[in-house]
Structures are given as structure tokens and as C-alpha cells.
Amino acid sequence: MGKHSLTKDHSRRNAVVVAAVGVGAVVALPATAQAATVQVPGTDFSAEVPDELIAAAGDYTGVDVNAVAGDVASQANLPAAPSSVGQQIADKALSKQGAPYVWGATGPDAFDCSGLTSWAYSQLGKSIPRTSDAQAYSGTPVSLDALQPGDIVSYYAGASHVGIYIGDHKIVHALNEGEPVQINDLDYMPINNAVRF
């Protein structure tokens, strides 16, 4: 470490700064510019925006800085925040809306109810039982008020039908012969149980 000397004409503030720097502290002097932290919605990205830049841009009193940052992020084509595995499973099943129901079919172009659920899970490398009753009784039970996208909901006594919860009180499922893969309300049929894998 180099030798430091203070002369009489240095201010007391300079002495404090030198001492603080000597012990590795970060010092913000009163004259240092202030900055606002801006969080880009839906991401882990944030940045410090100096007040001078905000002032130079004009008077934006009342402007939601985070909303503006979100607009900038979308215009910059930043990647979207990753979705949960459950949401990705629901999205895979949703991508098959309109596919025909065929008993025993497991995709990728036709499905029965448990064929759709097992296919959607397999697209994310998850292996679940093939039949509706095995799916209904193999996962971890979930109460209906705690459902998350990707959970499997079974219907009728004996779990003779299953669908994938997609959120907003809806499921996607392969209903039966003559009906394509579709979205219906969660309670479209009598619910047996719900599970999460």
C-alpha cells in the first residue's frame, strides 16, 4: 500500500474518504448522483437509472417507471420469464386442441384422455402411468383449491377420465369419440380427485 499524507489544506471529508477506501468501504459522497432502481417486470433484470437521465428526458411525474422498463424490454426482444414445469405441461396439452379422440391413442396426432396427459408430461421428460385410474392414484393428492397448471384432475368414481388443469378453473382434455381435444370448465363433469406429479 502506498504512503498517504494529508496536508492542512485537505478537508476533513477527504480524510474520511481516504480512511474508508483504505478499509475497502464504498463511499457515496453527498455530491454523488442519485439513481432509481428499475425492475423489468417478469424478469430478474434490474438496472440503476441515474436521476440525471430521468430529468433529461423531461418531467414524467406520475409515470410508472417499471411499466416503461417493461415496454423497453419487450421492444428489445428480451426473453420472457421462464414458466413453471406445470405450465409447460399445460401448454403442451393445449397445443393439441382440435386433435381427434381415438381410444388407446397416445399422440402425437390423436389421443384418448390419459394418452393426452401422459403425452404432455413426456414432452418435458416426465414419465407418468398410462391409464386414467393409475394416474389418479399415483401422484400426490392436491385439493381443488390448491390446483396449479399441469395438475391432473380425474373424473367419475374410479377415475375413468382425466384432464390437465390449465388455470382459471379450466381443464384441457380428450373427452370421447367424436369430440376433439378441448377446453372445458373444471367442474364440467363430477370430479373424483386431483394429483400432482
Rank of each mutant, 00 (worst) to 15 (best):
A93M: 12
A136Y: 05
T117R: 07
I89A: 03
A99R: 11
T117W: 04
Y121K: 03
T117L: 08
K126Y: 14
V142Y: 07
A110P: 11
A99K: 10
A134P: 06
K92C: 01
T106Y: 03
P100V: 11
T106G: 15
K92I: 15
G86Y: 08
L94H: 13
C113T: 06
G107C: 11
P141G: 01
L144E: 09
R130W: 11
S114R: 07
S132T: 07
A99N: 14
Y137D: 00
K96V: 03
S127N: 04
D112E: 05
S143Q: 14
A136E: 02
D112V: 10
S138Q: 09
A120D: 02
A120E: 09
G139A: 11
L147K: 05
Y137A: 03
A105N: 13
A90K: 13
S122Y: 04
A99F: 05
A136H: 05
W103P: 11
S127D: 10
S84F: 08
T131H: 05
D91K: 02
P100R: 08
P108V: 08
S138A: 14
A93V: 14
K126W: 02
C113W: 08
A136R: 06
V142R: 01
V102H: 07
P108S: 03
T131G: 05
L116H: 09
W103F: 15
S132I: 11
P129I: 01
P129R: 03
V142C: 02
A136G: 10
Q87F: 01
A146E: 15
A90L: 12
D91A: 12
G115Q: 04
P129M: 01
S122C: 08
S132K: 07
I128T: 04
D133N: 03
I89E: 06
Q148I: 07
S138I: 00
Q88M: 08
T131F: 01
